[in-house]
Design a protein around this nucleic acid. Sequence first.
DNA 1: CATAATGTTTAAGA
DNA 2: GTCTTAAACATTAT
Length: 261
Amino acid sequence: MPELPDVEIFKKEAGKAKNAKVKSTEVKGTKVLNVSQSELKSFLEDKKIEDISRRGKHLFLKVGKNQALVMHFGMTGELQYAKNGDNAPDYAQCVFNMENEDALYYISKRKLGRIDVAEDIDEYIKKSGLGPDAMQISKEEFLEKLKNSNSGIKSFLMDQSLISGIGNIYSDEILFQSKLNPRFKAKKLSSQQAEELYDQMMHVLETAIEKQADVSRFPDSFLLPHRKEGNKCPRCNGEIQKISVSGRTGYYCPDCQQSNQ
DNA sequence: CATAATGTTTAAGA
DNA sequence: GTCTTAAACATTAT
């Protein structure tokens, strides 16, 4: 699930714990911890969740001046807030019990996500080499980065050090809406194409968040509800094709995503 | 049973 | 140095 729009929804979920104090932390799967259990406990317990922020696919639950509990969701992570009495969902790796008896569940099936602590959020972001958030980056900076890239446009969008938040799924959608071939070189885009790409990136991400990152609610004109080899392109009725890019499987319509002029 | 899966990291090849 | 590919991670779903 978790690319920028999904994590934005998790941010809202975590917002339900705002101003609540963490009473205890239960670790069920050590695999997802980047810190020791004792460190996590002393960092968090008896602290108030002051605020939640997001940078790309990373979520920060602020508990001190610049300190935060950091969450990354890997491929199958989720965050759920539960009112007192609800029982732990399947695959909960970490449970944060609040003083008011509510609980925040960090869920991960494949355990590829990570929980970490940051003594200084900005420092942490710098150290992780995260580029600007895809929804915060200015058009000027985006165009500049495009020009300086030697990669294909899909790889460019998925490179977290350039822009953070976009992954395999949403890069497919953004390229589809921009009518661009995933392998087209980023620096070869005309300025018109580049601006269109920026606008579509914002539009796709905004729409996805508005629809709760739930593909079944996406407009039919989007690729994602049709994202499967052999399906019909919702725009030109062409046949959706599968390709391999940067080690991931991408989908696009070869008929209307050509990029040549 | 084999295969693919929304992510990141690391090593190796071009 | 840049970019791409493959493998590894760990597990579920098809």
